[in-house]
């Protein structure tokens, strides 16, 4: 008997399965390659890349909260040159599509980094980060205004020869407006949601735990919010959606797919269990077998 087909097509990308790590939760892949071959994944999504190296925010940068965590890493990354010279060439040998998350403080920076990544031939797609809640200059400022977002996406799209995904923030009044703006700007797909802004206060020091005071909330605690936003967005856009937010099991992933996601990203769960992604892939397969589902096309958006 032929097993279920987990493969998905995403804006022209052919993925073995719909599961990939979320940007920022997987470094540049090397650390988790010690736990399993990366070609088990649908794709690898690397940490946000900016033109120059960034140290990020002061520590503490992470804190646990009930059912989730807060982070305020602050887009720490070794910069475009190091990523092009050291990280992407290594990833290119891992037999898995690579999606590079790109961040910037100005339109010109996004354009330059996206062009360099796309022209390198080492990435399958770009994910535009317009939703980092932890950096004042840039990031989030591009993700909350539909006009600004549409313009940025259009500018990047002009120089980006590979599929362009736009990662949306949930920290807006109506995510559908931003989704439609990204689509109008030429995005080939959307990924959502980035983290929700949160805070934790230490009762002993009577101060916020994070040095940055606020941070992005992720983990199982955000899943219902994320499912709702994927569902709402899927109702209004024509481009594929990569859903994420608190996915820790195959059942969680299936829920996002039923809400309209074509693929999913797994973030915080990688920290709880380094084998989270392979486990989720196996659990999706089991779910399909148990329910007689031959292809994910059969359930994508079925809840809409």
């Amino acid at each position: 008997m032929k097993g279920p087909d987990l493969s998905v097509e995403l804006a022209g990308l052919k993925l073995r399965n719909p599961v990939m790590p979320a940007s920022g939760c997987f470094g540049f892949g090397r650390e988790y390659a010690k736990y399993y071959p990366l070609n088990q994944l649908g794709a690898v999504v690397v940490k946000a890349v900016t033109r120059l190296p960034r140290q990020g925010n002061p520590t503490p940068r992470v804190a646990e909260v009930t059912g989730g965590m807060l982070n305020a890493i602050g887009l720490a990354n070794p910069g475009l040159e190091a990523v092009l010279n050291h990280e992407l060439p290594w990833l290119a040998k891992q037999d898995v599509p690579v999606i590079v998350n790109v961040a910037g403080a100005a339109v010109e920076e996004y354009v330059e980094v996206a062009r360099s990544i796309a022209d390198s031939g080492l990435a399958a797609a770009i994910e535009l980060n317009v939703s980092c809640p932890n950096v004042k200059a840039g990031g989030i400022s591009f993700g909350v205004d539909p006009g600004v977002l549409k313009n940025l996406v259009a500018e990047v799209k002009q120089v980006c020869r590979i599929p362009l995904f736009v990662k949306l923030t949930p920290n807006v009044t109506d995510i559908r407006e931003l989704a439609l703006a990204a689509q109008a700007g030429g995005a080939d797909g959307l990924s959502l949601i980035n983290t929700l802004i949160g805070m934790k206060i230490d009762l002993n020091s009577r101060r916020p735990v994070l040095a940055n005071k606020i941070g992005g909330l992720s983990g199982p605690a955000v899943k219902p919010v994320a499912v709702r936003m994927v569902y709402e967005t899927a109702q209004v856009v024509d481009i594929p959606i990569i859903g994420m937010g608190g996915i820790a099991t195959g059942a969680d992933a299936v829920e996002f797919i039923m809400a309209g996601a074509s693929a999913v990203m797994v973030g915080t769960a990688n920290f709880t269990n380094p084998l989270a992604c392979p486990n989720i892939i196996a659990e999706i397969r089991d779910f399909m077998l148990e329910n007689g589902i031959k292809s994910l096309d059969e359930i994508r958006g079925c809840a809409l």
Partner: peptide, 29 residues
């Protein structure tokens, strides 16, 4: 010592600055 998330070097949560001001070192990895 620092608050850590992944513990394997992937999340850049626990870092310290280095004297040569190179990119921060990850305490866990």
């Amino acid at each position: 010592e620092e608050r850590m998330a992944c513990g394997v070097g992937a999340c850049y949560g626990c870092v310290c600055r280095t004297k040569d001001d190179a990119f921060s070192k990850r305490i866990c990895a």
